[in-house]
Design a protein around this nucleic acid. Structure first.
Lengths: 248, 248
DNA sequence: GAATTTCAATGACCGCCGTCAAGATCCGCC
DNA sequence: GGCGGATCTTGACGGCGGTCATTGAAATTC
């Protein structure tokens, strides 16, 4: 498929300045963060950070999708979040990670050595501010997720999930395309992952997807790509989950 | 019951220095934060921050329990978190709250004027660091919650909830008492709230609680107070939910 | 102390979904 | 092109839990 077997470290090609996350930072802050940035490349299925280990770096996704998950003693695993372009992960000022982070697709990640980053943040208030606001956003995302999981029916959770994709991942490369009439959503994970993500089983996901298609709310382009035909009815299906995620 | 109808502002009695949250801060940071702290008192049921409004302050709970929730268009509400002593809430550097914050019990809250706090944080790196780490902890708590909600059976979620109470709220006033043999847990919310919290209905909560009691895992002291008789079996009941929340 | 309200507990019914099993589809590989 | 594996789909069955209704207990009011 491709030649990558382990993360490739490259000291170049860190185009952080273009990332909206770093928009508005003073020039010297950008220069400083760029200096400690190393790009790593992961291929699908690789582990980025293992549960209960102390990661040596904090990252910001340049391309691709990572999956945060907890592998449970009974072997099952539950996904607690998906990370897409521009999302940050890894805990500054905390030692152990409480989750696995795995590549859900091939991914490129800007990595900051944790120690160097902590030193930098201590000296650069603007940067620290940026990280603080970023974590606050993650917190909001996590709470949106909690509301989604509070939906009782799988169909509601699925609809709410598609809405989150539409709302939060607008312009994230490869997820959304099409116009308002026929929004095309590409779900970047398979049925099994999606089932873990929504707290159910693959069979039930399959049924729920086809139920939405039978009702004319969506059309199935392929097993991971849907066209949203009737957004209002999708919102109605989501019920509770369709709300709770308004953004400024 | 008591004479409080609206929050009472008091400029005294802010004992922040004793709170573990602020432990380790330089003296001048503590003095500065104390200077902008005002204590407010809320009675059970009062709204602290309304959804989609711009709160004028950020708070740290001195006593009592607050409930973060989203009221949904169909009138139901879903709780996304409980806040106990020493927990902080309210979003620095962000304008609108995405949730309601209500007093679940009578509560005393240390409030920091948002504008003043933001100014302060800009000038005090140690304080900003403290807030950053604090938000990171909230994030972990939210993700523990996501794992809990990923449990399929209500009995698992209930067991996991009780374990979170034991684990995270040790020494929080009024929640835990007793020794290792017979841990007494006081659940600070009623069945309806608990049902919202666990993504189910009050009747099902009732059944699950009594099922645990019939199995000898817990004893019901009163409808909101349980004695944990068999911790290992409670962990076993929690299954997945019993894990995912190890702390350093 | 009786009445009203609120909350918890219990039973009956049934629908959603977890489970198991089988078939279909797509993929890489030889 | 044929084969084997992984993934997705579909069906049948049964149990958990959502819903409704009723009873009981506790708190507040008059």
């Amino acid at each position: 498929m491709n030649e990558l077997n382990k993360p490739v470290h490259r000291s170049s090609e860190c185009d952080l300045t273009k990332e909206p996350v770093f928009r508005g930072l003073p020039k010297e802050s950008i220069a400083a963060i760029k200096r400690i940035c190393r790009v790593r490349t992961y291929r699908e299925g690789q582990t980025v950070i293992a549960d209960q280990t102390e990661p040596s770096f904090t990252g910001c996704i340049a391309e691709g999708i990572l999956r945060m998950q907890k592998t449970l003693p009974d072997g099952r695993q539950h996904i607690v979040g998906l990370l897409v372009s521009h999302d940050m992960f890894g805990r500054v000022f905390h030692h152990r990670s409480n989750f696995d982070v795995e590549a859900a697709t091939n991914a490129r990640v800007c990595c900051f050595d944790r120690r160097a980053l902590e030193d930098l943040l201590s000296r650069d208030a603007a940067l620290e501010r940026l990280f603080l606001v970023n974590v606050l956003d993650e917190l909001d995302a996590a709470r949106e997720w909690i509301i989604l999981l509070g939906c009782r029916r799988v169909s509601e959770r699925l609809a709410a999930f598609l809405l989150i994709l539409c709302r939060r991942w607008t312009n994230v490369h490869g997820v959304l395309s099409g116009n308002a009439d026929r929004i095309r959503v590409h779900v970047p994970i398979g049925r099994a992952d999606l089932a873990n993500y929504l707290g159910t089983r693959p069979e039930t996901i399959s049924r729920a997807v086809h139920a939405l298609a039978d009702d004319g709310v969506i059309a199935i382009h392929d097993s991971q790509t849907f066209d949203i035909l009737n957004l209002p009815r999708l919102v109605a299906t989501a019920g509770n989950g369709g709300f709770g995620l308004e953004r400024p």
